[in-house]
């Protein structure tokens, strides 16, 4: 079986700070990291591999520097890694991104020339865009079933898939389907392993990231990158932060009333 894991390189946004004077992002020293939920995806792939054997293929679309996150995936234990990189992919929205990824997966499947079963595992969403759209759009492009928001997963027999999907705050639905399938995982599903030192040494010594450009994928320009995107960014702005410091006045009852009113407006309730 082949397990594709989709990886995204993202800015480590927990380190992003706003400069209060200029109200702009302070970008200095923000590292690029592997999207955290993608690590859960790799961990799941590794546990499936350990249980029943599989070839894990990490795939990403991004600038050449995204090679680093794929090397991290290889260090964790992925067997192969592909980076879809080309200026023609730039500016892609989720629709165009999922198309490029689908072309990549189809090409790898075709080139491997085997009829093995496959599945795709994605992190549910990326911390920079938070759209959670690429997974389902990729499943649609590949024409395979999807199970999103998965927090528990099991493969039974040859191709039976059973997944627990968190769909409401209080309920989980257990869904059954068959391979091939795309699942998107939540961080609750497992604790991703850190790559061991040996894993890192071997990733850099024995494995390599294969770069594929638009031509290698035979991608049609109308469906990739900026041109293939239906949505576009109209404007970007920094949300206004609460700046004022108000001391409430009046009786205690009046003060708590004003407070609750304000909290309601602030969407706390």
């Amino acid at each position: 079986m082949k397990i594709f894991t989709c990886i995204k390189q993202v800015p480590g946004i927990s380190d992003v700070k706003i400069d209060p004077k200029t109200n702009t992002l302070i970008r200095e020293g923000i590292p690029s990291i592997m999207n955290p939920m993608d690590k859960n995806a790799i961990e799941l792939a590794l546990s499936i591999k350990e249980e029943r054997g599989a070839e894990i293929i990490a795939i990403s679309m991004g600038p050449p520097q995204a090679e680093n996150v794929l090397l991290e995936a290889l260090s964790m234990g992925a067997d192969k890694a592909y980076l879809l990189t080309d200026r023609a992919f730039a500016g892609a929205d989720t629709l165009a991104t999922s198309h490029a990824l689908a072309l990549g997966i189809k090409k790898i499947l075709k080139d491997s020339d085997s009829n093995e079963k496959y599945m795709v595992i994605c992190g549910t969403q990326a911390i920079d865009g938070d759209t959670a759209q690429v997974g389902p759009e990729l499943a649609e492009d590949l024409d395979i079933p999807q199970i999103t928001y998965v927090q528990k997963f099991e493969l039974k027999g040859d191709d039976k898939v059973i997944a627990e999907r968190a769909f409401r705050s209080e309920e989980i639905v257990v869904i059954e389907t068959k391979l091939p399938v795309l699942i998107s995982v939540l961080k609750e599903i497992n604790t991703p392993r850190f790559p061991s030192m040996l894993g890192i040494v071997n990733a850099y010594k024995k494995k390599k990231v294969v770069f594929l450009d638009a031509e290698a994928l035979k991608a049609e320009k109308a469906y990739i990158g900026l041109t293939g995107s239906k949505t576009e960014v109209f404007k970007i702005f920094i949300p206004e932060r609460k700046g004022e410091h108000v001391k409430l006045t009046g009786t205690i009852e009046e003060m708590v009333k004003t407070l609750c009113q304000n909290l309601k407006e602030d969407k706390i309730f």
Partner: peptide, 8 residues
């Protein structure tokens, strides 16, 4: 970006 910026 984790709520740090808004995009239209």
């Amino acid at each position: 970006f984790g709520g740090n910026i808004m995009a239209t």
